[in-house]
Amino acid sequence: MIQAEDLVKWFGPKLAVDHVSLNVKPGEVLGFLGPNGAGKSTTMRLITGFLPPSEGKIAIGGHDMENDGIAARSLIGYLPENAPAYPEMTVAGFLGFSAEIRGLRGRQKKEAVTHAVEICCLEPVYYQTIETLSKGYLHRTCFAQAILHDPPVLIMDEPTDGLDPNQKHEVRNLIKRMGQQENKAIIISTHILEEVDAVCSRVVIINQGRIVFSGGPDELRTRSRSSGAVTIAVRGVSESDLKESLTALPNVDSVAILAKNDGRIQARAFPARKDGKPDLGTARAVAALLREKNWEFEELHTEKGRLDEVFRAITISETPQKEGAE
């Protein structure tokens, strides 16, 4: 549904987007991740046709953005960064205007607006001017504008930015539902990693304009150093003994001591990796060791891996980053 091929965007001498390709099918929710200034918003502006790319092609539902922009854009619902809206208009007026530009008139328009207002819980502020809205309502008003015409493609730039935890939860559920049940092709950008687990079926991470990861959330997690690591807590064992025995296991790559108090030691055994994938036999090997040594243990579990860890590893190690480089 969304096809972006080899997008490049220069701002003067600055390369903001560097050969980015994205393909999103109906029913997919693509999480677009990256640190601030990575080029997420710029990429979204290219895909929605707001900015022309320096190189590359965009097609929405088969309509080329350059030659058939109106048809392509009519398939998109877009929530730009910071949720812009006409400050002097009322919510009613703003949504009515959006509906009219989307070609909805009369009853269709009324129904579309009512439906969007209901979904976004805007009834209490329907006749209020936008400049008087709280950030949460402002955001949902712009959100309503994006889903009003029931578009098959949704592009949302940090859709939960500035919302309180309950609102965040609602918006995530809404996005998830629109992907799974309404079969829309969705791209959301975020730098909140929990969002990835909550809504995304696929993840693309960009750093300094380049794609540095593309895959499922689980695949991303296995990249984490701690994924597949086995954490144990034992009593009455000396630290050096524990460390040595664990390291001696063929499945274990290295061991870290996490905590030590009153003779209780918590340690983590990091698995050996083959092609970046952790050795899945590690937990069994560690358990066997504990039984064989007859050590008294209080804890034994396998780590799933942490997204923030991978995120940091991918976006910091690949390119030494200069802060504030404009």
């Binding site: 109106i70 730009p80 809206a85």
Partner: peptide, 14 residues
């Protein structure tokens, strides 16, 4: 200033 130009030019209008 309001950033609405981004909305306007991503709507199906020339």
């Amino acid at each position: 200033r309001a950033g609405t130009i981004e909305l306007l030019f991503t709507m199906p209008i020339t």
